[in-house]
């Protein structure tokens, strides 16, 4: 390794590198903290943090790990929420089937966007994904009003799980632990995906696409899979969100949802695994706290986000990892 390292090399983690080990430990610490979270902050906020953290992790599969800028994640989340809610509302099926439908919903939209735009780079992908998500918003708003109830969200009856044992989801604490277990499993699956050779190929594409192509990898196929995985987990988050809200609401599909997940992810650190999780927790906690004092939430979040981009582009967790890396460097090289 050359003496002159750039920040990218410091934050990109390698198999069994100190970064990967640190991330792995951070993941278990955060999941352990998740067990006691509803006793520290309010239960609905804790549930929301878990759901959006899963969403942000799924989003970061594309942005942080593959380097694809997506502004259409509201589409995946919303498709998941509506698919999950509609099978319950019209089909009367149980919660597990609803979550499967939500994953399918997110995946279908991801495949659609992937087919249209997988070969487009950078800004182009951002624009196309944003446009497709806006299309879904307007579709749900008026032409498909008959099925989605348009601006009145599609409301669900109180739900409960009967398999493997009875869980009453209208109880806030049971709902939290139900969501927590699913999110924790999804986080572990994502960790597994990213530690696989496929996961390393994703990082390779982010760092140097041409070199990975020269190594004989099928870039288009790998990128497409990354989009599909992202859609799958976002859809799952959408299904959980519909259960948590007791409704599939049109605001989920609004472009602001895509913007918020971008901000949460960047706040935590895009070039890390657990960054989006941390970013989401901080973001939602702050939003909850600040909105008690002011109506001007958007102004503050906009200004703070601009400051973040200018001063700490690696985010909270990314900056911490960078600092640790700087301290380690003399002995590591």
């Amino acid at each position: 390794m050359s003496a002159k390292q750039n920040t990218q090399e410091v934050t990109a983690y390698k198999p069994y590198s100190w970064q990967a080990i640190l991330e792995f430990r951070a993941m278990w610490v955060l999941l352990a903290l998740g067990l006691v979270l509803p006793f520290v902050i309010s239960k609905p906020l804790a549930t929301e943090i878990m759901i959006y953290a899963l969403f942000a992790l799924a989003f970061n599969l594309m942005l942080g790990h593959t380097g694809i800028i997506s502004f259409g994640h509201a589409g995946y989340l919303g498709a998941g929420a509506y698919a999950g809610a509609m099978v319950v509302y019209y089909g009367g099926v149980g919660v597990w089937v609803s979550l499967l439908a939500a994953m399918a919903g997110g995946t279908v939209i991801a495949v659609l966007i992937g087919l249209l735009a997988v070969k487009r780079k950078g800004a182009y992908f951002a624009m196309i994904s944003l446009a497709i998500a806006q299309m879904l918003y307007f579709l749900a708003l008026s032409p498909f009003k008959r099925w989605t109830d348009g601006e009145d969200s599609l409301k669900l009856p109180p739900l409960s799980v009967d398999f493997p044992f009875h869980i009453d989801l209208s109880d806030q604490l049971s709902l939290y632990y139900f969501v927590f277990v699913i999110v924790a499993l999804a986080v572990l699956v994502q960790w597994r995906i990213l530690s696989s050779p496929f996961g390393h190929a994703l990082k390779g594409i982010r760092e140097n696409e041409d070199r990975i192509r020269a190594c004989g990898f099928n870039i288009t196929r790998i990128k497409f899979l990354s989009i599909v995985y992202s859609g799958l987990f976002s859809g799952l988050a959408g299904g959980l969100l519909a259960i948590y809200l007791g409704a599939a609401s049109i605001t989920i599909l609004f472009w602001m949802t895509s913007g918020i997940v971008v901000m949460q992810t960047v706040l935590g650190g895009t070039h890390t695994f657990m960054g989006p999780f941390i970013g989401t927790a901080v973001f939602l906690y702050l939003r909850n706290a600040i909105s008690n004092y002011t109506d001007r939430w958007e102004m503050w979040v906009g200004a703070m986000f601009m400051a973040l981009i200018l001063l700490f582009p690696e985010g909270i967790w990314g900056t911490v990892m960078q600092k640790i890396g700087e301290r380690r460097r003399p002995s590591a090289s």
Binding site: L63, I69, G122, A123, A126, G259, V262, V266, R296, E298, M299, V301, G302, A303, F305, M306, I309, L310, P313
Partner: peptide, 16 residues
């Protein structure tokens, strides 16, 4: 992505 995100932040800041 960083200039893009800065513009995005401005787009949230100014309307408010």
């Amino acid at each position: 992505i960083y200039p893009l995100l800065l513009c995005f932040g401005l787009g949230i800041f100014i309307p408010d």
